[in-house]
Design a protein around this nucleic acid. Structure first.
Lengths: 252, 252
DNA sequence: CGCATAGTTGACAGCACTCAAATGAGGTGG
DNA sequence: CCACCTCATTTGAGTGCTGTCAACTATGCG
């Protein structure tokens, strides 16, 4: 299973490709090479590993947790993808984050007693649950774990700061281009990302996350396709020229 | 001086009003009641307190640090205000944060070796410097300090998440209204905030932070004034009716 | 294979951006 | 202390991107 910490994270809060060998139950997890950090893998976390509940399956559309619910676990996406959203003052859904395979949910909210948002599966997903009681306890005894958690949270700060930058400085098409490139990278790390992949979220989810309307997302995708930068059929995306896409919009 | 941690922060990363009694050098600081957290004040941080460099004065327009410069201190604003900004791909300034008296700068970036942005004084400001070497060292020995730092960083995540929400869901006038209310609160905590205050930053800074143009900020301020919600003369703002301002725009 | 839902496209309106000019505030020197 | 100068801020006019509403098309599940 995806073991607990996965802390030397990438820009978007994802798990690193490098890691020490997993042990115990985590050994059987296909995501363990991205989930365990060397610092943790080398330590005495066997107690925590053994208490991680593996293989909780959530079907597409199923709720992982609700806003206001007591927070008992940190969640790791072993496979599939999760959408986190809250409701604005008008009761309308607002997407605040996506979590793909190998990524941790809500680690930056460790001290909150209840969930601050809803989490729903965008496709059939396997989730690992890390008991917060034990995680918190271990943090008090292991400062290095604490530091790692801090590092993870710092990444989240950067993620949202970058999102603010994107939203406040880019037009719709650049936002969408950035989003697509980001998804490509996150769906397959290490190298430059996949050229063909499937977006599990709806256009309206992307729109909400990027602060624009669904129709505008659609128009932007069409524009990128007409420019020959991507090929699209429904949720299926193909990057024809990631370099040009990156260059044309000054992304990285 | 403003001592180091001030961790049980408020929503916007500011210091809380409640705190234990400061000791040693920090005793003489007018901000110490907001800067020290009970957990820290009660502990053995005297060594850290004594190494905090107090009273570094920065005049209006002066640079506190530069992007790319080695990061050696965490900074606490004892008085005045600091603007943090970076440069976008076009080399244009982009404001990423404001720090008012009692607030800590860059605590969410503890593990970065260099500064990620520029920091400039918006008015004559007194700054306290906390040596990162000692802070990091102490964190390894005191998990509670670590947890507090984590808590501080979590607040930053929320601040930026809230900013994304504001920018992606609000028109210009609502963004400006929210900003003004936020400033009023941060300039004087505890109660509901000041009714009259001075914005130390330029319209263009506000605009950059809120993801709109300077002219739009100006028009929004004029609109709020014409609606009888605020009174404005240059940088001087008076809230005529904070309740109506809050209600009309669904803020909190 | 058919239906329900998601996604696309079109038309039009509105808000914010851009460029430009006028006004006002703040700081300096006499 | 006042006048002047400079720069921030305000206001105006026109354009364009995105939002809104609506109709059409495609996709994917049963």
């Amino acid at each position: 299973m995806a073991s607990l910490t996965q802390l030397p994270v990438t820009r978007n809060g994802a798990l690193p490709a490098n890691a020490a060998l997993p042990s115990l139950a985590c050994r059987s997890c296909t995501a363990s090479d991205r989930c365990l950090t060397p610092a943790i893998a080398g330590g005495d976390l066997s107690e925590l590993r053994q208490s991680v509940k593996q293989h909780r399956m959530i079907h597409k559309g199923g709720l992982l947790f609700l806003a206001g619910q007591p927070r008992k676990y940190a969640h790791v996406v072993r496979s599939g993808s999760i959408k986190c959203y809250d409701l604005n003052i008008n009761g309308k859904e607002r997407v605040c984050d996506f979590h793909l395979a190998g990524e941790v949910i809500g680690m930056e909210d460790l001290d909150a007693s209840v969930h601050g948002c809803f989490a729903v599966a965008l496709e059939d997903s396997e989730i690992c649950e890390i008991p917060l009681v034990q995680l918190r306890d271990l943090m008090l005894r292991r400062p290095s774990l604490c530091r790692e958690m801090l590092s993870l949270t710092t990444r989240k700060v950067h993620q949202y700061r970058d999102l603010v930058t994107l939203i406040s400085q880019s037009d719709a098409t650049r936002r969408v281009a950035s989003f697509i490139l980001s998804m490509a990278r996150r769906l397959r790390r290490g190298d430059d990302g996949r050229l063909r992949f499937r977006l599990s979220m709806a256009r309206s989810d992307i729109a909400s996350y990027l602060g624009i309307q669904m129709e505008t997302v659609s128009r932007s995708i069409t524009a990128l396709q007409k420019a020959g930068l991507i090929r699209v059929r429904g949720k299926r995306i193909e990057l024809c020229s990631p370099e040009q896409l990156t260059l044309k919009y000054g992304l990285h």
